[in-house]
Write a protein that binds this DNA or RNA. Sequence first.
DNA 1: GTAGGGTTAG
Length: 689
Amino acid sequence: MRDTVCYNAMITCYSHNHDGHAAIELFRDMLWNKFGPDNFTFSSVLSALALVADDERHCHQMHCVVLKSGTGLVTSVLNALISAYVKCASSAVASSSLLMASARKLFDEMPAKDELSWTTMITGYVRNDDLDSAREFLDGMTEKLVVAWNAMISGYVHHGLFEEAFEMFRKMLLMGIQQDEYTYTSVISASANGGMFQYGRQVHAYIVRTVVRPSTDFLLSVNNALVTLYSKCSKLDEAQEIFNMMPIRDLVSWNAILSGYVNAGHIEEARSIFREMPEKNLLTWTVMISALAQNGFGEEGLKLFNQMKLEGLDPCDYAYAGAVTSCAVLGSLENGRQLHSQLVRLGHDSSLSVGNALITMYARCGLSEDAYSMFLTMPYVDSVSWNAMIAALAQHGHGAQAIDLFEQMLKEDILPDRITFLTILSACSHAGLVKQGCHYFETMCGSYGITPGEDHYARMVDLLCRAGKFSEAKNLIESMPFEPGAPIWEALLAGCRIHGNLELGIQAADRLFKLMPQHDGTYILLSNMYATLGRWDDVSKVRMLMRERGIKKEPGCSWIEVESNVHVFLVDDTVHPEIQAVYNYLEQMVLEMRKLGYVPDTKFVLHDMESEHKEYALSTHSEKLAVVFGIMKLPPGATIRVFKNLRICGDCHNAFKFISKVVEREIVVRDGKRFHHFRNGECSCRDYW
DNA sequence: GTAGGGTTAG
């Protein structure tokens, strides 16, 4: 025999098991069978309604039923109804303000309000991004309830209003409202995200001083927040110390310390933390995949992404973004395309992070047109998308288009940031647009109030030196408000090498030897510069210095993707299984090239110190091997896309022009800095690189 | 009814 009590029990049961639809269905059944609902029924079914939260009609219908029943004016039932409205409002897109208005009306008409009624309204407004109304309610409360204050503070924090969050916190202290772990974690997070480290440290000190017997829960959540604070403010040692002292840790603690090491760029430590973590979740995997991609470990990033799927986890859009970035690093177009189509199938392709990562993936795989169509078809774009697209054009040497896009960005009122300017400066530098570069450098400080960092100055020095304007570059360096560091001297030295400015080049190299004596690049550039000028004695002196100091040149390697597999070639490669066929093919190719006027330029052999057969050594540069392998393996006419870790060698650059003519196909080479598109005997960079 | 861990651009 069914009765109201039976129905109540079942409805409550469904509701507790988060099956809102079943609970509501049963409630309808109950009404249909003429069983009168009581306060318990309403409380249960209303919390079920809050769970479903998909339809405003449900709320209004239930409201009517409650009013009709006559029993429904009890505060607890009305609170549940308000809560249902509020939940529906935060999940509905269009009608959220209407739903909040209904909640408010109900609240205003309530005969007796309690703390819960007030708090529900406050959190409702906070969740619906109406902080002013939330604050109005809080200020109207006579009771100073910590839960309500916490809700308000967390609202401010989530909306980036960190100062306001702290103002509330101070007010609580003044008014003598007892704070709890929710309050502390929120304000600590405010200081971590708002760049207010000192505030955070003060809160930490305050907690240590005043909290006498913290519970385990208190210690867990507050310490988690503190680990994040110290990590984000680059105080990794302190973060680690807090982590070590924690009596118990949970997944949040581990993820926080993992992110700490990742943000500090300590990828090796991050790897070992990842390995030793007692449990992992979606977030853990996402952080690690992105970290690997960001640090250039594309292959490992992809591997981890696949492993994550094998372990039965569904990657979220952020994890996909990390995988896409891994493809960008590798230049693995096939894998990238596969991910893109998976994302479309899953409906993740409207995600901003995914879209932005895809722009970069297509661009870094050599397809700037595909990057652009990605940019155009994205449903929403932000400044990251604009920056990515401008960078794509810049890397491909399309300086003028990069500038056009930048101007369009300004017209659309998107605020450029320091990265936008970094990108636009390198666009100007690659395209030799000195005047425009100087103009944007001035605009950056003058119109946008962005203080140029050392990286901006380095781009400017690069721009000026490439164009041979050394005295301007020197003036700029002298005008800098800080001591020039390695990036500045590197840019200067690179420019000197291009123009054979030995005197200034030596000065720059001396500075670099002092600043980073173990860096191989300085020795290589200097030695190349001597070689270009035919000063062989000096070349061998530099070589000697390298040997004495035990400095090894970073080995050059190039790779190419064939049928989703990445084939890597080293200088003078003997490892690749098909290397002999590659050498044979290359030999034939050189004969054809010579017919068209190719003369190997032995200057560029100088990287390979021990090589006696200079011409032979030239033919074994990794980029040549990869290009030839591509010609052998890819279908006729297909574009050859090769990637190199270091800068492309001058002779290879010349050789690829000839090869593009001989085989009548496009060759695209991405080196450490930019792209070269070889077509019909010419390079897109017009030899300005 | 309140908290603490993530992404994409250079």
